[in-house]
C-alpha cells in the first residue's frame, strides 16, 4: 500500500501523469475507485483483497481521459484489459502508466508497458474457485437443464445494463441493443429479450473477455452473467489457443482465421 502511494506521488509530482486511478475506502466497508490529481492526496489510495473492480473501465471514460495522462493501479485482469484496449486501439500506450499489482498484492515496477507484457506472458490466470465450480456444474448439465437454468436465471434481469457499463471492453457508444434498424434484440426486459441480450453480450466478448468477473459483480440482482463471458474466454482459448490480453498486439480472434481451424462439426 505504501509503495503504491509512494509511486503515485512520484508520478504526480514529476508530472509524468495527471491522474492516478486507484482504490480508496468507500462507504459501508466498500472500496471504490479514486481519481487522484493532487500529490498531497495520495494517502487516500489503498489496496487490499476487496479491490476487485476492473479500473480499466475508466481509461475509456470521456471525463477521466479528459484529465490527462493516466496512471492506473492494475491487478492482473486489469493489466490484461489494458493490453486488450491497446490492441483494439481504444487506449494509446503513451497515455497510460501502469502501477501493476502482482499475485502477492505487491507493487510491480514496470518501466514501460513492454515489461508488463512480458510479465503477463508468465502470469497465471485465476478465476475464483466458486466460479470454476459453477462453470463445471453447468457443463455437466443436460441441454434441457442448461436451458432451464439460464432462462430462469436471466428472467429477473431488468436490463439496467450494469454488466455492460462495468465492462471495460464494452466501450461502444451505441451498443448493438440500441441499434434499432432493425431491432435485433427485443428492448424490453422479458424472458426472451433477456436471453438474447445476454447471448449477444457473450458473443461480442468472445475472444476478448479477460475473465475479470466484473460484470457479474456489478449485477444488482446477482445474476451470474460473468459465467457466460468466462466460458467464452475458456472456449476461445481451447479452440484457438489464445488467451486474450496477453499482448498489446493481439489479433482479434473473430476477425482472423487459420486454415486448420477444426471443422469436424461441419458436414
Amino acid at each position: 500500500m505504501e509503495s503504491i502511494r509512494k509511486k503515485a506521488k512520484e508520478l504526480l509530482d514529476s508530472k509524468q501523469v495527471q491522474v492516478i486511478i486507484g482504490y480508496e475506502n468507500g462507504t459501508s466497508n466498500k472500496v471504490r475507485a479514486a481519481f487522484i490529481t493532487d500529490p498531497t492526496q495520495v494517502d487516500r489510495l489503498i489496496y487490499d483483497e476487496r479491490c476487485t473492480q476492473n479500473l480499466a473501465v475508466y481509461l475509456v471514460k470521456h471525463e477521466v481521459k479528459h484529465l490527462g495522462k493516466m496512471g492506473i493501479v492494475a491487478t492482473i485482469p486489469v493489466m490484461r484489459t489494458i493490453n486488450m484496449l491497446i490492441s483494439e486501439e481504444q487506449v494509446k500506450p503513451e497515455n497510460v502508466v501502469v502501477l501493476g499489482i502482482g499475485e502477492d498484492g505487491k507493487l510491480l515496477d514496470f518501466p514501460d508497458l513492454t515489461v508488463m507484457e512480458s510479465f503477463l506472458q508468465k502470469a497465471k490466470i485465476e478465476i475464483t474457485a466458486k466460479d470454476k465450480e459453477a462453470m463445471e456444474k453447468l457443463k455437466k448439465m443436460t441441454t434441457q437443464e442448461k436451458f432451464d437454468y439460464w432462462s430462469n436465471a436471466l428472467e429477473t434481469c431488468f436490463k439496467c445494463y450494469a454488466c455492460r457499463s462495468s465492462c471495460p471492453l464494452c466501450y461502444c457508444t451505441r451498443c448493438a441493443v440500441e441499434c434499432n434498424q432493425p431491432q435485433w434484440i427485443p428492448v424490453q426486459a422479458n424472458k426472451n429479450g433477456n436471453y438474447e441480450w445476454h447471448m449477444l453480450r457473450a458473443m461480442h466478448l468472445a475472444g476478448r473477455c479477460v475473465s475479470c468477473g466484473d460484470c457479474g459483480r456489478a449485477c444488482p440482482l446477482d445474476i451470474p452473467v460473468h459465467l457466460l463471458t468466462m466460458h467464452m474466454a475458456e472456449e476461445s482459448k481451447r479452440l484457438f489457443g489464445v488467451d486474450s490480453g496477453f499482448s498489446m498486439k493481439m489479433e482479434s480472434v473473430l476477425s482472423n482465421y487459420k486454415l486448420d481451424d477444426k471443422d469436424n462439426f461441419i458436414q
Partner: peptide
C-alpha cells in the same frame, strides 16, 4: 459452444 452452454 455458447449455444450449447446456454442450453440451445
Amino acid at each position: 459452444e455458447l449455444l450449447d452452454y446456454m442450453g440451445v
